[in-house]
């Protein structure tokens, strides 16, 4: 009888998920403002021209696909100088900075990033005229249902 009850609980999830659920303790969100100021300079970035492609629900925070695109002709006169990715709950919030120029032809990048739990991701683009544009998105990162070797 008791065994049956336990199986029900175990297979239903409660018993198994207890440990991984506790393991996904979110780090407090970093205040991104100083980092953003460092990248953008004195004038705050304006929302727009940057697009973030990120799944709204990521299956595993170890590897999340990220697409970035900036509206820009990428000409000598008018191009994107740099693109930056920030994740507010990662232990180190600055994920990557890319410097590019007219030789890129198109201001578009794809990469795979780590996300330490559900959080807000911010992308910034600094243009050749010094203006900074931004976009942000929220992503939910799920934890594994079963305890695995590395979660020990």
């Amino acid at each position: 009888m008791r065994r049956r009850h336990f199986l029900k609980v175990g297979a239903g999830g409660t018993a198994i998920l207890a440990v991984p659920a506790a393991a996904q303790q979110l780090l407090p969100a970093h205040d991104l403002a100083p980092l953003i100021m460092q990248i953008a300079g004195t004038s705050p970035p304006r929302p727009g021209r940057v697009r973030i492609g990120l799944p709204s629900l990521a299956e595993n925070g170890n590897s999340v696909p990220l697409d970035l695109a900036v509206d820009s002709p990428m000409s000598e006169a008018d191009h994107v100088r740099s693109i930056h990715v920030l994740a507010e709950r990662n232990p180190r919030p600055l994920v990557a900075s890319f410097q590019l120029g007219p030789l890129a032809g198109r201001a578009q990048l794809s990469l795979r990033i780590r996300l330490a739990g559900s959080q807000r991701v911010v992308a910034l683009a600094v243009m050749s005229d010094g203006a900074c544009w931004s976009a942000e998105t929220e992503v939910v990162v799920t934890s594994a249902a079963c305890l695995d070797e590395l979660s020990l």
Partner: peptide, 23 residues
């Protein structure tokens, strides 16, 4: 300690949801 066999999750409960995953 959970007293489970492979069959309990992967046959009897296959397709059911465990946390955010489908077994």
């Amino acid at each position: 300690q959970m007293n489970l066999a492979c069959t309990h999750c992967h046959e009897q409960k296959a397709g059911k949801t465990l946390l955010a995953e489908q077994i």
